[in-house]
């Protein structure tokens, strides 16, 4: 029997996502290999606010903006970046 490998990911939330979901971070388990798009698809199903913001969320991996097609790994520090408004 072939067993599907899974990866566990830690996803940091800020601003409107942190407030509406009520958590600073999420622990997510996805079938491997998983990309940013897989993660966002999954999160959009689980959390309506992520579906609302899906089109404007930028993905950061290890504190750098990356394309959502990037493959994710267990130790990565992943963050969902909604449109920023500093200044």
């Amino acid at each position: 029997m072939h067993e599907t490998p899974y990866i566990r990911l830690r996803v940091l939330l800020f601003s409107v996502l942190r407030e509406r979901i009520g958590q600073h971070e999420l622990e997510i388990t996805l079938p491997a290999p998983a990309t940013g798009d897989h993660l966002l698809d999954y999160l959009a199903q689980q959390y309506p606010v992520i579906a609302d913001y899906r089109s404007v969320i930028r993905l950061a991996v290890n504190q750098t903006y990356v394309p959502t097609s990037t493959e994710l790994h267990e130790k990565d520090e992943i963050a969902l970046i909604t449109p920023v408004s500093g200044g």
Partner: peptide, 14 residues
Amino acid sequence: LIDSLKCQVPIWKR
């Protein structure tokens, strides 16, 4: 610097 900060740096205001 100020224009780029406002679109790139992950800071949010409420």
